[in-house]
Design a protein around this nucleic acid. Structure first.
Length: 112
RNA sequence: CGAGUAAGUCAGGCAGUUGCGGGUAGAGUGUGAAAACACCUGUCCGAGGAAAGUCCGGGCUCCAUAGAGCAAGAAUAACGGCUAACGGCCGCCGGGGGCGACCCUAGGGAUAGUGCAACAGAAAUAUACCGCCACUUAUGUGGUAAGGAUGGAAAGGCGAGGUAAGAGCUCACCGGGGUUGGGGAGACCCAACUGCCAUGUAAACCCUAUUCGGAGCAACACCGUGGUAAGACAUCAUUUGCCUGCUCGGCAAGUCUUUUGGAGGUGGCGCUGAGCUGAUGCGGUAACGCACAGCCAAGAUAGAUGACUGCCAAAUACAAAACCCGGCUUAUAGAUUUAGUCGCACC
RNA sequence: CGAGGUGUAGCGCAGUUUGGUAGCGCACUUCGUUCGGGACGAAGGGGCCGCAGGUUCGAAUCCUGUCACCUCGA
């Protein structure tokens, strides 16, 4: 497993929302921004609109599971923020995987 | 067979691939003076009956307090028990509902005082509108609560006697208060006597009895960067940082101790604890208690259980620990166990 | 973890303290006015007072529980 960092501070999320490129699908929204370091930083957002704790935890897990599939191919030097939507807790991780893969290919952050 | 009542149990399982958090072992690898940290390999464990809402009660920690009491405020309210404690639980009494199994019940005090009772009604705690009776007669005076009418409520209810007409005025039954006796641990129940002192509301103020010091793990304890203040030593050199990846060179910065301060981190934190399990034994109607046997079983810090495949008829409910316990309340697909009740049919 | 507030007509709000009639503005319907519309005038409809129990003769109001939303503090 490759190393990556998690985004914890609010200003990092705000920078991704304001300056990053956004890619939208019915199950997930992706924001990508360069961070001027050699690290890969990941953040997952699940708001109260999604549901209660069980639904929010499930969103985080299936987004993380889909992200682990793509982790070896992602270039360094980016902040990536995934935002769950209302339909996210009811779909499978393979749907998330297809959506995220499509987003990252559009942003040109995959190696191949 | 149908309907209904009460008390419980489970909360998908198995197999495979891959992945996450923690403990532990290693003679393994790397960094390091060491302690230790990271990785790797093996092995063990890894969300709930409500973890939820945060409505009560405690443990624990700090603050206050010699010890205790008063006032204020809040909570509770038949009686007996259980419990560390409780506003919880069990039993039981009274009241209410159901044909029944059974269910519901904030259930102290209205002769301590104050307040309120719209509309209707003659009159609402007080009364004579109609009516009835007596006396007197344009008329009025007195007696009367049986009847009419209003209302949630009109000076116990109903029947008989009695009376001028009436009235617990008298009597039987029912209801209530008081006294005496009996039963019960008690709430209370039963019987006899006594002739009725008088609406409701205290989830209105209030009175009585009992209980409560305050705050909360972001508590609290420890380590501690930069900065601040004081003292000692030094003003060369060394060291550190920058230009600059290296050497030369240049530039900049004093160091240590104590105090204050509190970015961040560690503990608190899962550890033997009001612990968990028991088709075990004893006591108790029960809640529960005692004994015995076995077990140690999540502990994260943006927050760990996911993904994919196959089989089981179906996998589809509500919902995720965050210092820890005991309750309460609310949400909940489906499956299943036990014990009563009523109705119909048959023997 | 702690503290507080709000749910009333399609929308925005009174009324709750001190229990008996549910009201105001905009919007809606009809009529009048105008050549027509707007404005104006007149009349009218629309409410289980968030939900469920209880106290009371009687509850939007009092009490208990519960649901949803909002705000604040550490």
């Amino acid at each position: 497993m490759r190393d990556y960092l998690t985004i914890k501070e609010n200003w990092q999320f705000q920078r991704a929302y304001k300056r990053g490129k956004s890619f939208v699908s019915p199950v997930v929204v992706t924001y990508i921004v360069k961070n001027n370091t050699n690290n890969l930083q990941i953040g997952i957002t699940t708001s109260k609109k999604i549901g209660k704790a069980v639904q929010r935890n499930r969103c985080r897990r299936i987004i993380r599971a889909a992200f682990y599939e793509l982790l070896p191919d992602i270039k360094n030097g980016y902040d990536i923020v995934f935002v769950a939507r209302a339909k996210t807790p009811f779909v499978k991780s393979t749907d998330i995987l297809n959506a995220i893969k499509n987003h990252l290919q559009q942003a040109n952050v995959l190696n191949n």
